[in-house]
Design a protein around this nucleic acid. Structure first.
Lengths: 247, 247
DNA sequence: GCCCATGCTGCCAAATTCCGGCAGCATCAT
DNA sequence: ATGATGCTGCCGGAATTTGGCAGCATGGGC
């Protein structure tokens, strides 16, 4: 591969990683020595790319480089189509629709050969076991998450016990058969997960919750990491995140 | 100026002119000989640029090399991210990488607010049961499908019986735990499905198969529709497509 | 049909760049 | 302090690039 092609590649690799990447890692990924990688970075910077490198951390590409990315590769098209088909088949109606319309927008900017690739893609999502329908509109959950608004939930746990609570929803987790909404529960003052098909009703409140969503996600990850492991064999993997409202 | 920088430059120059420009003019503008310019054009084309040159006219950069700005609704962004995350987590390495790469490309041409939406999306794919690893490179299967080339397979069926055959692969079906390659089997003169994790080896042959892929897909759907239904409860849904080589 | 502008390719020898390794220094997080 | 990482200078051999030339192809204007 010639140097010039490599630079395009490097740019794309940098775009792909959003976290800082070490020069060593980049060098390996592109198949070139560390010394050469430093030279390549310098070349890109000389052409206006805002690549920031910090000692002890790695490189990040700041957006805004004057050169927009190259067109998708056929494999990337396949990935987009497959992903969208999964969403179209496994997510709720609104999201499914959105997946298809997003794909249509992508298609509109493709050169003819790639458009054909997209339309004729032969990667299919096989229909799986039916997913339990939600009583509420999942779009509402997503909207609450997006806008960081509180939700008042009526929820029935695995034992059928009903409860009502206000939560700060910050994530949706998609399992093969189940979707969980994850949030901070004001009632329990703790993180809780809720199967969306067990949410009997949800009302979006006026109040935004006081912590940024990204912050909540981060804290939740730490919290989750610190949780004691479950008894082995307790639950199948697909339910491993089941709400533990063992109060 | 090094060659690689020059290529970036040439790209910009081409983007600037929308009327055809002669090679001579481009060469002068960049300060390089005509011979070299031709080489540079060839390099860019090799990287996917759709630069059209007509004798007696000049060069035009057709859109489709660089990704134009894209606009999506927040919900469409969520769908794209979720789909890409599914591919990133559930498909083979190459495709997973391509999914992230595509997402990065989209991100780079999004207006800042939507980019934030994309990066902060809180829809996650939960890790599922591990997927049996393939003995062969799945990218090869996709490539054969894409280019409509025959494959020589070594395959072991559910009973461990090995066989060797030439197939015309035209689709990949993704189940929760299993991936099936679907093709026309020359050995059986019929449609067959193959679990990718049971393909011991695959070799792409020179020969392209004589029927268009879309045509095969269509025929297969009809064929499948006409198949007698299986005995109820015979196999879990995820394996419903298992090859039935009951010869 | 002729001619011209232009695209495009093969060849080659000289000039240039590129590459990897090494050694060393700077800077930041832990 | 220590380690991880970014970054630069230097060197010699390897690889690429470059420009010139010669020639062919193609399409439009005359």
């Amino acid at each position: 591969m010639s140097r010039s092609e490599r630079l395009f590649d490097l740019l794309q690799v940098l775009r792909r990683h959003r976290r800082p990447v070490s020069g060593r890692a980049l060098a390996d990924e592109i198949g070139v020595s560390l010394r050469t990688l430093y030279r390549d970075i310098a070349s890109l910077q000389a052409q206006g790319a805002t690549i920031e490198g910090e000692p002890g951390v790695g490189y990040v590409l700041r957006p805004g480089f004057l050169l927009p990315p190259l067109m998708f590769t056929p494999e990337e098209i396949e990935a987009l189509v497959l992903g969208s088909r999964w969403v179209a088949g496994r997510a709720d109606g609104r999201l499914a629709e959105a997946a298809l319309s997003a794909l249509a927008r992508v298609s509109a900017v493709l050169p003819p050969d790639l458009r054909e690739e997209l339309e004729g893609s032969s990667l299919f999502i096989a229909p799986g076991a039916p997913i339990p329908a939600d009583a509420i509109d999942p779009a509402l959950l997503r909207k609450a998450i997006r806008t960081e608004r509180k939700l008042r939930l009526s929820y029935s746990d695995a034992n059928g016990a009903a409860s009502e609570r206000v939560v700060w929803p910050f994530a949706l987790a998609f399992f093969d058969q189940v979707r969980l909404m994850i949030g901070w529960c004001e009632l329990r003052s703790d993180f809780r997960s809720f199967r969306t098909d067990r949410i009997a009703s949800a009302e979006m409140l006026e109040a935004r919750y006081p912590t940024r969503r990204a912050e909540l996600v981060q804290r939740w990850k730490q919290w989750k990491h610190a949780q004691p492991p479950r008894e082995p064999g307790a639950l199948p993997a697909a339910y491993a995140e089941e709400p533990t409202d063992a109060a």
